[in-house]
Computed example of a mutant assay.
Amino acid sequence: MEIRVLGGLAARLGAVDLPLGTPKQQLVFALLVARANRLVTVHDLVDELWPDAPPRSAIANVRTYAANLRRSLGSGADDEARIVREPGGYRLLIDEKLIDLHRLNVRSRRARELMREGRSAQAVPVLVEVVGAAAPLLAGLALGPALTAQREAVSQERQAALELLTEAYLDLGRPESAVSLLRDHVSHQPLRERAQCLLMRALIQTGDAGGALAVYRATREALSDQLGVPPSAEMERLRVAATRARRRIPESAREVETIRSGAHKRNWLPRTVMDFVGREEMVDRLSPFHPA
């Protein structure tokens, strides 16, 4: 048994897709999957299916959808996943490893642990898999409030994984990979300062200080226009770093001291007078030792 909620909704037993019914019935199954092994009340299901104005038959319809799903899962002759009826609602009993979203969340947590331990090289392949596998939750379904919030949480998790992957690339001295990963991401997230700061860092490391300053200006304008707030202290620090890099101002006091005490010293005194050339007779006459 495998249940997919990333992208479209599907329940597969071997090579066979189990029938999940109408869109409303699929929403019942989706909420049960999202809250696997927890009780989902009938009222929760009604609110998800009809958030505005539930019909009088809402509770009866929910019970019909749940009964159909129980038969569909039972027809697979597989006891790995089953829906049980309990007082007040329903529960999907399942090993969560069979759900693609659960497996993705496990990999995300593992990647964070590796980054906290300073093991960026080991985190990269895990994060690449997470970013590549993440897809909109339950694509194609008109979700109610609970599943809409879940979809947004999945989207935020993918963004966080992408930014963590960028950080790993920067740790490993691969700023070009970070830039290519972030370009499209930040264009859709003009107010996400963490992503903008990471892009500025990557551009500075690639030697494109002008590009980093352009990112700063665009973000500052977006923050001012849409939120009425200034850039963060980190972004201001990166602006200073990009400005110094662009003007080739040394970053450390040691470099400053080297310039001050080294071969870059200038002598502003007038040059010494050069010897006369081709005026031997005149020099002899001017000499105090010239015979009268």
Results as ranks from 00 to 15, higher is better:
Ser108Thr: 05
Arg109Lys: 14
Arg110Trp: 07
Arg110Asn: 09
Ala111Lys: 12
Glu113Pro: 08
Leu114Thr: 07
Leu114Tyr: 03
Ser120Leu: 01
Ser120Tyr: 01
Ser120Cys: 03
Ala121Arg: 09
Ala123Ile: 03
Pro125Lys: 05
Val128His: 06
Glu129Phe: 01
Glu129Ala: 12
Val130Trp: 02
Val131Ala: 12
Val131Lys: 07
Ala133Arg: 13
Ala133Asp: 11
Ala134Trp: 03
Ala135Ser: 14
Pro136Lys: 09
Leu137Lys: 14
Leu137Arg: 14
Ala139Leu: 10
Ala139Pro: 09
Ala139Lys: 11
Leu141His: 00
Leu141Ser: 06
Ala142His: 02
Ala142Ile: 11
Gly144Arg: 00
Gly144Asp: 02
Gly144Val: 11
Ala146Trp: 06
Thr148Ala: 14
Arg151Glu: 05
Glu152Lys: 15
Ala153Pro: 03
Val154Asp: 00
Gln156Cys: 10
Gln156Leu: 11
Arg158Asn: 10
Arg158Ile: 04
Gln159Cys: 10
Gln159His: 14
Leu162Thr: 15
Leu162His: 08
Leu164Cys: 03
Leu165Lys: 07
Thr166Gly: 13
Thr166Glu: 13
Glu167His: 14
Ala168Trp: 03
Ala168Pro: 13
Tyr169Pro: 15
Leu172Glu: 15
Leu172Phe: 08
Leu172Lys: 05
Glu176Met: 13
Ser177Tyr: 09
Ala178Ser: 13
Val179Ser: 02
Ser180Asp: 15
Leu181Gly: 04
Leu181His: 07
Leu182Lys: 07
Leu182Asn: 08
His188Trp: 07
Leu191Met: 08
Leu191His: 06
Leu191Val: 03
